[in-house]
């Protein structure tokens, strides 16, 4: 177990180091998110939404910005291995599940950084207020993990295909749409301070994340060794 964690940590550290050399994924995610947020803030702003519609519409806009930013950079972790021809070496030196865990951790941390920058900005620019902070943080954490686990698996698939960039969004979004609905409902409930609503949405998000984790553990070695 400790060996598995140490090896996954090594894959994660390697990805982090190579990412900081080029910052491709970080720049793509960050700039996409900030540009979209600027467009949303400029066209809609904090006061153009009626008071009653604010919890739902602001929650929906927040998650749409996060999802589309994720589509811009979360495939890099596998695509860069194929582009730089380092994937065969990684296949030889590490167990598939170790690679999966390291890449998943990298995507989760990348999303965490994105959310940590984006959400406070969104709150300031859109006048977004949350009644249940703990509920909101739980929704962000569970949502970020489920988003990362699903996109990691899809990134592994598309890394071996043609026209990868477009294909990543095309394959990921249909799988992520149920998650988007649950997260919007959970965030709306957190804005309104409804513990019951947050708990209902969290149950759905955690179940989806759990199912995706189990399926990924079973299927990733097949994709990676193909």
């Amino acid at each position: 177990m400790w060996r598995f964690l140490a090896e996954s940590g090594a894959v994660f550290a390697k990805d982090l180091r190579t990412e900081f050399r080029t910052r491709v994924a970080l720049n793509a995610l960050g700039l996409f998110a900030v540009t979209t947020l600027a467009a949303v803030s400029y066209t809609i702003g904090p006061y153009r939404i009626a008071e009653n519609d604010r919890p739902f519409l602001l929650a929906a806009l927040l998650w749409i910005v996060i999802f589309f930013a994720a589509m811009a950079g979360l495939d890099r972790t596998f695509v860069k291995e194929e582009d730089t021809h380092t994937a065969p070496l990684l296949r030889l030196s590490a167990d598939p599940l170790v690679v999966w865990a390291g890449k998943l951790l990298f995507n989760f941390v990348l999303l965490g950084v994105l959310i940590a920058i984006l959400v406070p900005l969104y709150m300031v620019l859109m006048g977004f207020r949350v009644d249940s902070t703990a509920g909101f943080l739980l929704v962000l954490g569970a949502g970020g993990y489920t988003l990362a686990v699903t996109t990691t698996m899809v990134a592994a698939i598309i890394a071996r295909a043609m026209s990868r960039g477009a294909l990543f969004s095309v394959l990921s979004l249909p799988l992520l749409l149920p998650l988007l609905i649950f997260l919007i409902q959970g965030t709306r409930a957190a804005v309104e301070g409804s513990a019951e609503g947050v708990s209902e949405a969290l149950r759905a998000v955690v179940s989806l994340g759990g199912v995706m984790t189990v399926v990924s553990v079973v299927l990733f070695p097949v994709v990676w060794n193909e």
Partner: peptide
């Protein structure tokens, strides 16, 4: 292989679409 993996991944989301989404909305 890749499409088989995607078909399985997609199938596990179906119960969420059919049973959970209509309960939330």
């Amino acid at each position: 292989t890749m499409s088989a993996v995607y078909a399985i991944l997609a199938f596990v989301t179906v119960p969420f679409l059919v049973f959970v989404v209509p309960r939330i909305y």
